[in-house]
Amino acid sequence: MKAHFQTDQGQVRTHNEDSGGVFFNRTGQLLAIVADGMGGHQAGDVASQMTISFVGDRWEQTDCFDSSEETEAWLSDILQETNQELLDHARENEACAGMGTTVVATVCTADFVAVSHVGDSRCYKLDMDGFTQITEDHSLVNELVRSGQISKDDAEHHPRKNVLLKALGTDDEIAADTQTIKWEIDSKLLLCSDGLTNKLADDELSSFLKKDQDIETICSDMIELANDRGGEDNISLIIVHHDTAREEGEA
């Protein structure tokens, strides 16, 4: 199983509020996570970096996960714990008041992927059945689409497109959406912040993932295109390629 994380400040922002990483637990199981921070005085980067560090460190201390149920429970619990860490930090540090972050995290085993997210950072899957968006944005515009008030095309240009309904670090209780999906050999996952999805359409994302290139090159090419189209936001992504049946040491 291969994975690669890449992030870019973009063409407009003065600093990068995105964070992410790929981590392995004691038995070699993989966690991929992307966070897109928000908040004044650079507090967004504090929120996203704290999230990645906290979740990654905890993952590295775990042992093998055999069932989807225990994996989903771990993800849901760790994001609630992370939420509390962010709230406590903001209350103790005035410069971080109001900070928050989106997050999308996947635990990838040989047979299944557990996905958990809060906000509008996304997870997609490419397999024999095609290209699918796994997560549903926790955003005002997505709720308007789901309720039939606007179309998907309208959503792309809606003036309140960036309004989130959920984020880590903004409420005492946060309910992450968590699910498990199956995957097979040669499937790929894409985790990304909205700096990528605001610039590349789904069919373009799919075309990139289908390329017979190493995942590092694909990540770089996707970021380059997003920047060529304006790069107004930070751009972050992880590609996970299920290229082997089972990692050494994985149960």
Rank of each mutant, 00 (worst) to 15 (best):
M1V: 15
A3T: 09
H4P: 01
H4C: 14
F5S: 06
F5Y: 15
G10Y: 06
T14N: 12
T14G: 09
G20V: 12
G20S: 04
F23I: 03
F23R: 03
F24K: 08
Q29R: 09
L31I: 12
L31A: 09
A32Q: 03
G37D: 13
G37F: 08
G40T: 04
A43Y: 09
D45M: 12
S48N: 07
S48G: 10
Q49W: 01
Q49L: 11
M50W: 06
T51F: 03
I52G: 03
S53T: 15
F54G: 02
V55M: 14
G56L: 09
D57F: 13
D57V: 10
E60Q: 15
D66L: 12
E70Y: 06
T71E: 11
W74M: 00
D77M: 03
L79W: 11
Q80A: 12
T82S: 12
N83V: 14
N83L: 07
N83D: 05
L86K: 07
A90I: 13
A90D: 04
R91E: 15
E92G: 00
N93E: 08
E94M: 05
A95M: 11
C96H: 12
M99I: 05
V104H: 05
V104Y: 02
C108M: 15
C108H: 10
D111M: 02
F112E: 06
V113E: 00
V113L: 00
A114I: 05
H117L: 02
V118Y: 03
V118A: 00
S121N: 01
R122L: 01
R122E: 05
K125M: 14
L126V: 06
D127P: 08
D127K: 08
G130M: 04
H138F: 03
S139K: 08
S139E: 09
L140T: 04
R146Q: 13
R146C: 02
S147V: 04
Q149R: 15
K152Y: 11
K152N: 03
D153P: 02
A155C: 05
H158K: 02
H158S: 10
H158P: 10
P159D: 05
V163G: 01
K166P: 08
L168S: 10
D171A: 05
I174F: 10
A175V: 13
T178Q: 00
I181H: 01
K182V: 06
D186A: 06
K188H: 11
L189K: 11
L189Q: 04
L190T: 08
L190I: 06
S193N: 02
T197K: 03
D202F: 07
D203K: 14
E204V: 15
E204W: 03
E204T: 14
L205P: 07
S207M: 13
S207G: 14
S207A: 14
F208C: 09
L209K: 12
L209N: 10
K210Q: 15
Q213N: 06
E216H: 13
S220Y: 08
M222H: 07
I223V: 14
E224V: 01
L225W: 03
A226W: 06
D228S: 14
R229H: 10
G230D: 14
G231R: 06
E232I: 10
S236I: 00
I239P: 05
I239A: 04
V240I: 12
V240Y: 09
V240F: 11
H241I: 02
H242W: 07
T244R: 14
R246Y: 04
E247A: 13
E248G: 04
E250M: 13
